[in-house]
Each structure stands twice: as C-alpha cells, then as structure tokens.
Computed example of a mutant assay.
Amino acid sequence: MTGSTPLRRDAARNRERVLAAARQLFAETGRAVTHNEVARAADVGVGTVYRRFPTREDLMLALFEDQLALVGRLADEALAAEDPGEGLRRFLAQVVEMQAADRGLQEFMLGPQARSRAGAATSRIAPVVGALLDRAKERGQVRPEVTALDVALIPVMVGEVTARSRDVVPGLWRRVLTIALDGLRPADGELPGAPLTPAQFEEVVSRGR
C-alpha cells in the first residue's frame, strides 16, 4: 500500500499535465490535434496519453466536462450577485467568452457527444439560471416575456457567429453579444412569435450537427 501512493500521485499529475496540454492545443488549433502532439506538449510518453484517453474524443469529453463544471460555478456566482440583471449579463458573457477562447471546445460542442454529456449538467444549471432570470424580471431589468430558453439561445447564436467569423473578424462576437444582451432589456411592444418549447429548443440547437 505504501508504494502505491506515489504511483497514484504520479498518475494524477500526469493526467493533469495531459489535460492542461490538450486544453491549450485544442484551444489554439481546434480538434485536429494528435495524441503525439499532446504527449510532446505535456512532456509524457504517448502511451500515457493513450492509457488515460484512448481516443481524441475521450480527451475532448474530459475537457468538456471540466468546462461544464466551471459553467455551473459561474451560474452559482451569478445567482448570488446583488444585481440580478448584471449577474445574468455577466454569466452569459463569461460563457460566450469561454467558447470564443477555445476553438476545439466550440467545435466539440457542435457534435452529438457534447449534447448527450451536457444533459446532467444542464439539469443542474438550468434552474439556477431560471431563478436568476426571475429575479431580474422582478427588478424590471429584463423583458417579462423572455423565457429561460430565450436566454439559453444567446450562447448558441453568438457561438455560431464566433465559429464563422473567428478567422475573419476575431472579436465580432463581442459586438453581437452586446446586441443580444441589450435585447433582454425592457422595451415598448412585445416580442413577436411564441416562445420555444423544450422540444423545439432541442431540435433547433441540434440542427446541422
């Protein structure tokens, strides 16, 4: 037992080194990263990478789950904000900025595996964001007809702009996000059309993936 503890510690350190290297490489270059490149960047043997993460998708899933955990913490922080409207806008900006800063994560999020793995995290985060939205409405900071699914569409919409404009106008997402966030503020007149149902939302965000 005594000899196994250092081995477990070494294995844990190697795993973190692999994930840190993969996170940087995927963020910079997208999903077209090989195990050999990750091993070189992490300064470990390629066999170490394969043992922990047999496929590139396994690596992406591990990184994606880390990001989901971070989004959950950001949602909790936003809910605790004294100003709910500002908390909601800051939370959405943080989520979109995470997407914009990580090319590989954004590419992975457009795939079916991300949708299947996001279910449990979304179930935990959605009520928090819903409560934050309700508080902002009570303060008169958000249009009363805006729904939680309307809010959830904002990172999806801005994410599409980010993916298409990244190599043309890298910072365009900030402008588009500001326009979208301003659209949440109370205004004269009502929003056109009916709000999305959960089934419609799932179909919309799954199209083209």
Rank of each mutant, 00 (worst) to 15 (best):
A131Q: 13
G119S: 14
P112L: 10
R73M: 05
E97G: 00
A136D: 11
A120C: 01
A136W: 01
F108H: 09
D150R: 07
R117D: 10
P144L: 14
V156D: 11
L88A: 05
A101F: 00
A148L: 15
G119W: 11
R90I: 01
V156M: 09
E145S: 04
L149I: 08
Q113V: 09
V129R: 11
M98H: 06
A121Q: 02
R89Y: 01
L133G: 00
L149V: 08
D76A: 14
V95P: 05
A75D: 05
R103K: 15
A80K: 08
E107S: 08
V96P: 01
Q99M: 15
A78R: 03
G72I: 01
R139E: 15
E82M: 10
A100C: 13
D83Q: 15
T147F: 09
L88E: 04
Q94Y: 05
G85F: 01
A148N: 12
P127M: 12
G119I: 14
G140V: 06
D102P: 05
L133S: 01
T122N: 11
R143T: 05
A80E: 12
A148K: 05
Q106T: 06
F91D: 03
A120K: 08
T147A: 12
L79N: 07
L149A: 10
T147L: 07
D76E: 13
D76M: 03
P112W: 08
A136M: 06
A121K: 02
L110M: 14
G140E: 11
E145M: 00
A80Y: 00
R73S: 10
G104A: 12
L110E: 13
D76Y: 00
D102T: 06
D76F: 00
D83L: 10
G87W: 02
V146F: 01
A80F: 00
P127R: 12
R90M: 02
S116W: 00
R117M: 07
V142C: 09
D134L: 14
L105F: 11
A114P: 00
R103T: 12
G119P: 02
A118R: 09
A93V: 02
R124K: 14
E86N: 11
P155S: 10
Q141E: 15
A78Y: 00
I154E: 02
D76N: 08
R103W: 12
E86S: 14
M157F: 14
R115G: 13
I125F: 03
D83S: 13
L88V: 02
A131L: 09
F108L: 07
I125A: 09
I154R: 04
E145H: 00
E97Q: 06
E107Q: 15
A131D: 13
R115M: 15
P84H: 10
D102F: 01
T147E: 10
G72L: 08
E138I: 07
P84E: 07
F91V: 01
G140F: 04
Q113C: 04
R135D: 05
R124P: 02
A126R: 14
E145P: 00
V96I: 11
G85W: 04
A118P: 01
A152D: 10
K137L: 13
A93W: 03
A81F: 04
R124W: 02
E138A: 15
V129I: 12
R90E: 04
L105T: 05
R115F: 14
T147Q: 09
V156G: 07
